[in-house]
Protein backbone atom coordinates (compact mmCIF):
# COMPACT_ATOMS: atom_id res chain seq x y z
CA UNK A 1 0.00 0.00 0.00
CA UNK A 2 2.13 2.80 -1.27
CA UNK A 3 1.31 6.26 0.01
CA UNK A 4 0.26 8.98 -2.40
CA UNK A 5 1.40 12.49 -1.53
CA UNK A 6 -0.68 15.18 -3.23
CA UNK A 7 0.41 18.80 -3.22
CA UNK A 8 -1.89 21.63 -4.20
CA UNK A 9 -0.18 24.70 -5.61
CA UNK A 10 -1.18 28.07 -6.96
CA UNK A 11 0.86 30.28 -9.23
CA UNK A 12 1.01 33.94 -8.16
CA UNK A 13 2.85 37.07 -9.33
CA UNK A 14 6.17 37.58 -7.56
CA UNK A 15 5.37 40.41 -5.10
CA UNK A 16 8.81 42.04 -5.29
CA UNK A 17 8.64 42.00 -9.08
CA UNK A 18 5.45 44.01 -9.24
CA UNK A 19 6.47 47.52 -10.17
CA UNK A 20 4.49 50.66 -10.58
CA UNK A 21 4.20 51.67 -14.21
CA UNK A 22 4.76 55.19 -15.48
CA UNK A 23 1.01 55.75 -15.24
CA UNK A 24 1.01 55.04 -11.52
CA UNK A 25 -0.78 51.72 -11.86
CA UNK A 26 0.63 48.35 -10.95
CA UNK A 27 2.43 46.92 -13.94
CA UNK A 28 1.45 43.26 -13.77
CA UNK A 29 2.55 42.39 -17.29
CA UNK A 30 6.18 42.43 -16.31
CA UNK A 31 5.68 40.61 -13.02
CA UNK A 32 7.20 37.17 -13.01
CA UNK A 33 5.15 34.32 -11.68
CA UNK A 34 6.19 31.98 -8.91
CA UNK A 35 4.63 29.18 -6.96
CA UNK A 36 2.92 30.82 -4.00
CA UNK A 37 5.43 30.79 -1.13
CA UNK A 38 3.23 28.84 1.30
CA UNK A 39 2.55 26.24 -1.41
CA UNK A 40 6.32 25.87 -1.86
CA UNK A 41 6.53 24.89 1.81
CA UNK A 42 3.74 22.40 1.14
CA UNK A 43 5.76 20.92 -1.71
CA UNK A 44 8.80 20.60 0.54
CA UNK A 45 6.71 18.95 3.28
CA UNK A 46 5.73 16.33 0.70
CA UNK A 47 9.36 15.74 -0.23
CA UNK A 48 10.21 15.37 3.47
CA UNK A 49 7.49 12.72 3.84
CA UNK A 50 9.13 10.90 0.95
CA UNK A 51 12.13 10.28 3.21
CA UNK A 52 9.85 8.17 5.46
CA UNK A 53 7.97 6.63 2.52
CA UNK A 54 10.57 6.14 -0.20
CA UNK A 55 8.06 4.31 -2.43
CA UNK A 56 5.44 7.08 -2.23
CA UNK A 57 3.92 8.52 -5.37
CA UNK A 58 4.19 12.31 -5.56
CA UNK A 59 1.47 14.25 -7.34
CA UNK A 60 1.12 17.98 -7.81
CA UNK A 61 -2.20 19.60 -8.74
CA UNK A 62 -3.33 23.08 -9.60
CA UNK A 63 -6.32 24.93 -10.94
CA UNK A 64 -5.91 27.90 -13.22
CA UNK A 65 -5.06 28.97 -16.75
CA UNK A 66 -2.63 27.10 -19.00
CA UNK A 67 0.23 29.31 -17.85
CA UNK A 68 0.06 27.50 -14.50
CA UNK A 69 1.88 24.61 -16.19
CA UNK A 70 5.08 26.49 -15.34
CA UNK A 71 4.37 26.08 -11.62
CA UNK A 72 3.62 22.39 -12.07
CA UNK A 73 6.86 21.87 -13.98
CA UNK A 74 8.79 23.65 -11.22
CA UNK A 75 7.28 21.23 -8.70
CA UNK A 76 8.37 18.28 -10.83
CA UNK A 77 11.85 19.79 -11.10
CA UNK A 78 11.94 19.80 -7.29
CA UNK A 79 11.15 16.09 -7.19
CA UNK A 80 7.46 15.42 -7.89
CA UNK A 81 6.41 12.66 -10.31
CA UNK A 82 3.07 13.58 -11.87
CA UNK A 83 1.21 16.82 -12.53
CA UNK A 84 -2.50 17.58 -13.04
CA UNK A 85 -4.04 20.88 -14.05
CA UNK A 86 -7.72 21.76 -13.89
CA UNK A 87 -8.17 24.44 -16.50
CA UNK A 88 -11.45 25.67 -17.89
CA UNK A 89 -12.68 29.11 -18.90
CA UNK A 90 -15.90 28.40 -17.05
CA UNK A 91 -13.92 28.35 -13.80
CA UNK A 92 -12.91 32.00 -14.24
CA UNK A 93 -14.05 34.19 -11.36
CA UNK A 94 -14.49 31.32 -8.95
CA UNK A 95 -14.21 32.27 -5.29
CA UNK A 96 -12.60 30.09 -2.65
CA UNK A 97 -15.77 28.05 -2.13
CA UNK A 98 -16.07 27.22 -5.81
CA UNK A 99 -12.34 26.59 -6.07
CA UNK A 100 -12.41 24.16 -3.17
CA UNK A 101 -15.28 22.32 -4.79
CA UNK A 102 -13.56 22.16 -8.17
CA UNK A 103 -10.27 20.87 -6.79
CA UNK A 104 -12.02 18.33 -4.58
CA UNK A 105 -14.01 17.12 -7.57
CA UNK A 106 -10.82 16.67 -9.59
CA UNK A 107 -9.16 14.72 -6.76
CA UNK A 108 -12.23 12.50 -6.38
CA UNK A 109 -12.14 11.95 -10.13
CA UNK A 110 -8.54 10.80 -9.74
CA UNK A 111 -9.72 8.25 -7.17
CA UNK A 112 -8.92 10.08 -3.97
CA UNK A 113 -12.10 9.76 -1.94
CA UNK A 114 -12.67 9.32 1.77
CA UNK A 115 -13.27 5.62 1.18
CA UNK A 116 -10.04 5.13 -0.75
CA UNK A 117 -8.30 1.86 0.00
CA UNK A 118 -4.89 3.38 -0.66
CA UNK A 119 -3.65 5.95 1.89
CA UNK A 120 -3.10 9.48 0.67
CA UNK A 121 -2.29 12.86 2.14
CA UNK A 122 -3.07 16.25 0.65
CA UNK A 123 -0.62 19.06 1.36
CA UNK A 124 -1.35 22.68 0.61
CA UNK A 125 -0.02 26.11 1.41
CA UNK A 126 -1.66 27.90 4.31
CA UNK A 127 -2.86 30.74 2.07
CA UNK A 128 -1.88 32.56 -1.10
CA UNK A 129 -0.18 35.92 -1.40
CA UNK A 130 -2.76 37.21 -3.88
CA UNK A 131 -5.89 36.12 -1.99
CA UNK A 132 -4.84 35.61 1.62
CA UNK A 133 -8.04 33.82 2.64
CA UNK A 134 -6.64 30.42 3.72
CA UNK A 135 -10.01 28.91 2.78
CA UNK A 136 -9.19 26.51 0.00
CA UNK A 137 -7.38 23.71 1.89
CA UNK A 138 -10.26 23.52 4.36
CA UNK A 139 -12.85 23.61 1.58
CA UNK A 140 -11.09 20.73 -0.17
CA UNK A 141 -11.06 18.67 3.04
CA UNK A 142 -14.75 19.37 3.65
CA UNK A 143 -15.78 18.52 0.09
CA UNK A 144 -13.86 15.24 0.11
CA UNK A 145 -15.01 14.59 3.66
CA UNK A 146 -11.67 13.94 5.34
CA UNK A 147 -9.94 15.43 8.41
CA UNK A 148 -7.82 18.53 8.15
CA UNK A 149 -5.09 20.33 10.05
CA UNK A 150 -4.36 23.91 9.13
CA UNK A 151 -1.43 26.22 9.92
CA UNK A 152 0.94 23.30 10.23
CA UNK A 153 4.68 23.79 10.39
CA UNK A 154 5.85 20.22 9.94
CA UNK A 155 4.28 16.87 9.31
CA UNK A 156 5.68 13.42 9.99
CA UNK A 157 4.41 9.94 9.44
CA UNK A 158 4.12 7.92 12.66
CA UNK A 159 4.77 4.61 10.96
CA UNK A 160 1.14 3.52 10.88
CA UNK A 161 -1.49 5.17 8.73
CA UNK A 162 -1.42 8.29 10.87
CA UNK A 163 0.55 11.49 10.61
CA UNK A 164 1.67 13.85 13.35
CA UNK A 165 1.20 17.49 12.46
CA UNK A 166 2.82 20.32 14.41
CA UNK A 167 0.30 23.12 14.27
CA UNK A 168 0.98 26.74 15.14
CA UNK A 169 -1.45 28.13 17.69
CA UNK A 170 -1.36 31.31 19.69
CA UNK A 171 1.47 31.11 22.17
CA UNK A 172 2.80 27.74 21.08
CA UNK A 173 2.23 24.58 19.12
CA UNK A 174 -0.44 21.93 19.02
CA UNK A 175 0.57 18.40 18.08
CA UNK A 176 -2.17 16.62 16.20
CA UNK A 177 -2.40 12.99 15.26
CA UNK A 178 -4.46 12.57 12.11
CA UNK A 179 -5.50 9.46 10.25
CA UNK A 180 -4.83 9.36 6.55
CA UNK A 181 -6.38 10.39 4.24
CA UNK A 182 -6.28 13.98 5.44
CA UNK A 183 -5.51 17.53 4.35
CA UNK A 184 -2.65 19.52 5.86
CA UNK A 185 -2.03 23.22 5.15
CA UNK A 186 1.54 24.38 5.67
CA UNK A 187 2.85 27.67 7.03
CA UNK A 188 5.97 29.25 5.52
CA UNK A 189 7.88 28.63 8.75
CA UNK A 190 8.87 25.01 8.32
CA UNK A 191 11.61 23.54 6.16
CA UNK A 192 12.29 25.95 3.27
CA UNK A 193 11.61 24.65 -0.22
CA UNK A 194 14.55 22.97 -1.92
CA UNK A 195 16.07 24.15 -5.17
CA UNK A 196 15.29 22.36 -8.38
CA UNK A 197 17.69 19.69 -9.55
CA UNK A 198 18.88 19.59 -13.14
CA UNK A 199 17.73 15.99 -13.50
CA UNK A 200 14.34 17.12 -12.19
CA UNK A 201 14.24 20.03 -14.63
CA UNK A 202 14.95 17.66 -17.52
CA UNK A 203 12.13 15.40 -16.33
CA UNK A 204 9.83 18.42 -16.03
CA UNK A 205 10.69 19.60 -19.52
CA UNK A 206 9.59 16.31 -21.04
CA UNK A 207 6.64 15.77 -18.72
CA UNK A 208 3.14 15.39 -20.10
CA UNK A 209 0.85 17.36 -17.81
CA UNK A 210 -2.66 15.97 -17.61
CA UNK A 211 -5.12 18.82 -18.10
CA UNK A 212 -8.79 18.43 -17.22
CA UNK A 213 -11.75 20.58 -18.18
CA UNK A 214 -14.85 20.59 -15.97
CA UNK A 215 -16.60 18.14 -18.28
CA UNK A 216 -13.75 15.65 -17.85
CA UNK A 217 -14.28 15.49 -14.10
CA UNK A 218 -18.06 15.68 -14.20
CA UNK A 219 -18.36 19.09 -12.62
CA UNK A 220 -21.43 21.14 -13.54
CA UNK A 221 -21.33 24.87 -14.11
CA UNK A 222 -23.91 25.83 -11.48
CA UNK A 223 -21.51 25.97 -8.51
CA UNK A 224 -18.44 27.44 -10.19
CA UNK A 225 -17.37 30.65 -11.87
CA UNK A 226 -18.67 34.06 -10.89
CA UNK A 227 -22.31 32.99 -10.88
CA UNK A 228 -21.61 29.91 -8.78
CA UNK A 229 -19.57 31.74 -6.20
CA UNK A 230 -21.37 32.87 -3.05
CA UNK A 231 -18.81 35.60 -2.39
CA UNK A 232 -19.97 39.03 -3.47
CA UNK A 233 -17.43 41.79 -3.89
CA UNK A 234 -19.52 44.77 -2.83
CA UNK A 235 -16.93 47.46 -3.08
CA UNK A 236 -13.21 47.94 -3.56
CA UNK A 237 -11.62 50.76 -1.61
CA UNK A 238 -8.22 52.27 -2.13
CA UNK A 239 -6.82 52.61 1.37
CA UNK A 240 -4.76 55.73 1.82
CA UNK A 241 -2.54 55.70 4.85
CA UNK A 242 -2.88 58.75 7.08
CA UNK A 243 0.45 57.99 8.66
CA UNK A 244 3.19 60.49 7.98
CA UNK A 245 5.91 59.26 5.66
CA UNK A 246 8.73 57.37 7.31
CA UNK A 247 12.17 58.90 7.31
CA UNK A 248 14.84 56.23 7.08
CA UNK A 249 18.05 56.59 8.98
CA UNK A 250 20.84 55.84 6.54
CA UNK A 251 24.48 54.99 6.88
CA UNK A 252 27.10 52.52 5.84
CA UNK A 253 28.20 51.71 9.37
CA UNK A 254 26.90 51.98 12.91
CA UNK A 255 28.39 55.42 13.48
CA UNK A 256 26.94 56.92 10.30
CA UNK A 257 23.61 55.25 10.98
CA UNK A 258 23.30 56.62 14.51
CA UNK A 259 24.44 60.08 13.34
CA UNK A 260 21.76 60.02 10.70
CA UNK A 261 19.12 58.95 13.22
CA UNK A 262 20.07 61.71 15.65
CA UNK A 263 20.10 64.28 12.85
CA UNK A 264 16.61 63.18 11.80
CA UNK A 265 15.33 63.36 15.35
CA UNK A 266 16.84 66.80 15.79
CA UNK A 267 15.28 67.96 12.55
CA UNK A 268 11.98 66.68 13.82
CA UNK A 269 9.03 65.63 11.77
CA UNK A 270 5.34 66.18 11.47
CA UNK A 271 4.44 63.10 13.50
CA UNK A 272 2.31 64.79 16.12
CA UNK A 273 0.75 67.34 13.82
CA UNK A 274 -0.34 64.57 11.47
CA UNK A 275 -1.85 62.56 14.29
CA UNK A 276 -3.73 65.56 15.57
CA UNK A 277 -4.99 66.30 12.10
CA UNK A 278 -6.36 62.78 11.79
CA UNK A 279 -8.06 62.92 15.16
CA UNK A 280 -9.60 66.25 14.30
CA UNK A 281 -10.90 64.89 11.04
CA UNK A 282 -12.62 62.04 12.84
CA UNK A 283 -14.34 64.44 15.17
CA UNK A 284 -15.54 66.40 12.15
CA UNK A 285 -17.65 63.48 10.99
CA UNK A 286 -18.78 61.76 14.18
CA UNK A 287 -21.51 59.66 12.60
CA UNK A 288 -19.19 57.80 10.29
CA UNK A 289 -18.21 54.47 11.87
CA UNK A 290 -20.11 51.20 12.08
CA UNK A 291 -23.64 52.45 11.56
CA UNK A 292 -24.02 51.30 8.01
CA UNK A 293 -22.69 47.81 8.55
Amino acid sequence: MALTIISLVKQVPLPSEMRMGEDGLMDRTKAKSIINIDCQFGLEAGLQLLKQHPDARLIVCSMGPGSFEAALRSAVAMGYDEAYLLSDRKLGGSDTYATGLAIATMLKHLGFTKDSKEPFIILAGRQTSDGDTAHVPSQVAEKIGIPQATFVESVKSDGTNNVVAKRIIEGGYQLMNLPMPCVISLTPTGIPPRKQSLSGAIKARNLQITTFGIDDIGLGTEKIGISGSPTIVAKVVNMVSERPPITLAEGHNEVALVDSLIANLAKGGNVLEKKEAVEKKEVDRPDFPNKDF
Binding site: G79, I191, P192, R194, K195
Partner: peptide, 23 residues
Protein backbone atom coordinates in the same frame (compact mmCIF):
# COMPACT_ATOMS: atom_id res chain seq x y z
CA UNK B 1 28.31 18.59 -12.29
CA UNK B 2 25.74 21.05 -11.02
CA UNK B 3 26.19 22.45 -7.56
CA UNK B 4 24.72 20.73 -4.50
CA UNK B 5 22.08 22.95 -2.91
CA UNK B 6 20.54 22.96 0.54
CA UNK B 7 23.79 23.54 2.42
CA UNK B 8 24.30 25.84 5.38
CA UNK B 9 27.06 28.48 5.59
CA UNK B 10 29.56 25.82 6.64
CA UNK B 11 28.64 23.37 3.91
CA UNK B 12 26.61 21.01 6.10
CA UNK B 13 23.61 19.38 4.48
CA UNK B 14 20.28 20.83 5.51
CA UNK B 15 16.96 18.99 5.45
CA UNK B 16 16.21 20.37 1.99
CA UNK B 17 19.52 19.20 0.55
CA UNK B 18 19.35 18.52 -3.16
CA UNK B 19 22.32 16.77 -4.70
CA UNK B 20 23.72 18.18 -7.93
CA UNK B 21 23.34 16.35 -11.21
CA UNK B 22 26.23 14.82 -13.11
CA UNK B 23 26.04 15.78 -16.75
Amino acid sequence: KTKDTGLDHHGNQLENFQAGTRI
